[in-house]
Write a protein that binds this DNA or RNA. Structure first.
Lengths: 216, 216
DNA sequence: GTCAATGAGTGTGTATACAAGAAATTGGCT
DNA sequence: AGCCAATTTCTTGTATACACACTCATTGAC
């Protein structure tokens, strides 16, 4: 348990939402949550407000909190912004790369190669996350890194769905290769372009995502 | 007063911070705020947590809340991200422009022309804000618009400082002209480039900002 | 039979009380 | 006289109590 109950609860509830235990559209009753976690309503309300700020739930005055159920076009918009931010991170990383960041990116890239080769989509999901985080860190812009991490966390469940699409693992990894090459070559604009294309969900990727969303 | 006291307090305290009544680094005592606004500690704590989520204050466990005092390099990073997001908004606006958005941008642009011509930096500050907001809306991406508005609000005080720099009004307005031309011409990539350059604080603009920050 | 209005019930919003940790002050010791 | 430690005080974190708004169901009228 974290140092204060409110933050711990935030993480607990966030995980429950991201793992679909609390389904989109579901109402979150403060008292039910309080008894479930063995605390009073006060820290529950704190946690809910933080989740509201993150954008995972919506709190309507006097009407309680519900898990947000974003429309497909909104998810598309979120990926569009994510692609832009990651593109910026990539271009900065290419210009500012130092040994430490280079090593971190290389290591994550290697792990992606292994899990992609093994066709292990769960492992790749995790390694891919580390790869992207390594690029955020390499941008050497703390604020950008924070923004990327926050949006990444919010998009996490959809990224996972994307990986289920056939051949996506190998496609994703080969895109990683071009991104790594561009960054290591110090070519900021190429890194930006490749990352934008890699993260964005243009065309059929979007319909694939929508299809896998409705499938569950 | 808003529908619930917590949100009202959030706005009140936010304004107090942005107008420098609560200076950066200052400690915000819950009880002091509660008596000042004639409420109990509960909604004050709510407001503080929301401000913490926005990034205006920092809440350290068991040690209270302090107004964040961002280092100059962090402000630079924030403008860098803002420039990227506005660039995206501009490029989308150029591609998706409809009559309504075109009218809104034109109207805001006209008002900027008037206040810039009059040398009224306070009026220009406000009109400039509306101009940028019109572009966010024209992007037709609700999520992007929200992100832009949020970051814009956080950078508001620094934008104001920037306008105090000599000749910045006319420079800013002439940049607006090129942006409007690019958007109206449907040239997304030009709109992106011009907006990035307009919003970012490269080179001497950054040192101007730092100078005006230390001056107060 | 349908629609509206009123009442009960449930749940959020705010206040207050209590517990626990951090900071400050005072006292003793070197 | 200065520094360290212990105690006190002040502030935050959590629990609980109470008030009020919203929802939903039931009853009555058209």
């Amino acid at each position: 348990m974290s140092e204060n109950v409110g933050r711990w609860l935030r993480d607990e509830i966030e995980n429950a939402i991201l793992s679909n235990e609390f389904a989109p559209g579901e109402r979150l009753d403060e008292m039910v949550l309080a008894t479930r976690f063995g605390v009073s309503r006060t820290p529950v309300r704190e946690a809910l407000m933080q989740l509201n700020a993150i954008g995972l739930i919506e709190i309507r005055p006097r009407r309680g909190a519900v898990v947000i159920d974003p429309a497909p076009h909104r998810i598309f918009e979120m990926f569009e912004v994510m692609a832009e931010l990651e593109g910026l991170a990539g271009s900065l990383a290419a210009r500012r790369l130092d040994d430490e960041s280079r090593a971190a990116i290389t290591a994550a890239h290697r792990r992606c190669e292994l899990s992609a080769g093994a066709g292990d989509s769960d492992a790749y999901y995790y390694d891919n996350e580390e790869f992207h985080k390594a690029i955020y860190a390499a941008s050497r812009s703390e604020f950008l890194e924070e923004q990327c991490l926050q949006l990444h966390r919010r998009l996490r469940p959809y990224r996972r769905l994307q990986l289920r699409v056939r051949n996506r693992l190998s496609t994703s990894f080969s895109e990683h290769c071009t991104i790594v090459d561009a960054i290591f070559a110090g070519n900021g604009e190429e890194a930006r372009r490749f990352l934008r294309a890699h993260v964005g969900i243009q065309g059929e990727r979007f319909s694939d995502l929508v299809a896998s969303m409705t499938a569950r």
